[in-house]
């Protein structure tokens, strides 16, 4: 059954008709449907501020060399922040601010059908994602135990190529931070 997550963003009255026209069937998922509600603009500004903070942190943290104390410090701070987030989640439970709570989305893009999938789709999902995980890990191990590395590149060695340039490393770092925030709220 379709569920609507709150607070998803809804359209300004001015654009109501345009958005409504897009919704041919309210139960049908739609891609990249962003609708704005006036009361959620504060949430949008907070999200935008968070994005800026994460981007700046990723830029600075990715500028230091690996195998150095600053690199360990910056990554350590991110890990500590995650631990703190988990602590407050557990401590405050439902009293936690919206952005801290598990299963809560400040911005909802795409499908209006949120919440956990049905049992059947969940089972298929577990099989599919489990297979993908084991395929990736298995192929990584196959390449890891073969040499030379140039001929048998592992995922790690391929990704290392992206960490040579500051911009791409910063992007990877920001992606890692966002992944951590995403996983902590699932």
């Amino acid at each position: 059954m379709a569920q609507v997550s709150g607070p998803c963003l809804e359209v300004f009255p001015l654009e109501a008709n345009k958005a409504e026209r897009r919704l041919v069937n309210r139960d049908r998922p739609s891609f990249m449907l962003v609708r704005l509600r006036a009361s959620d603009t504060a949430g949008m500004y907070k999200t935008a501020a968070l994005v800026v903070v994460v981007a700046c942190y990723a830029w600075v943290a990715s500028g230091v060399r690996t195998f150095t104390a600053p690199a360990a410090t910056f990554t350590g701070i991110a890990l500590f922040a995650l631990v703190a987030l988990l602590f407050f989640q557990a401590r405050l439970g439902d009293r936690a601010p919206a952005f801290l709570r598990r299963g809560h989305r400040v911005v909802s893009l795409g499908s209006r059908r949120t919440g956990l999938a049905s049992a059947q789709s969940a089972r298929r999902g577990a099989l599919a994602w489990g297979a993908a995980f084991f395929a990736i890990v298995g192929f990584e191990l196959v390449n890891f135990f073969q040499l030379p590395r140039q001929v048998h590149p592992t995922l790690s060695s391929l990704i290392n190529g992206f960490t040579q340039d500051h911009w791409s490393k910063a992007l990877l770092y920001a992606g890692w931070l966002v992944l951590g925030a995403y996983l902590s709220r699932r």
Binding site: P29, G110, L116, A117, S121, G125, A126, W129, Y182, R186
Partner: peptide
């Protein structure tokens, strides 16, 4: 596919939620 048809296949996020 999972985002387009969540009734057929759970998304990575939903699977993570169940797993975690």
């Amino acid at each position: 596919f999972a985002v387009a048809k969540p009734s057929s296949l759970a998304t990575f996020g939903d699977t993570c939620s169940r797993l975690m």
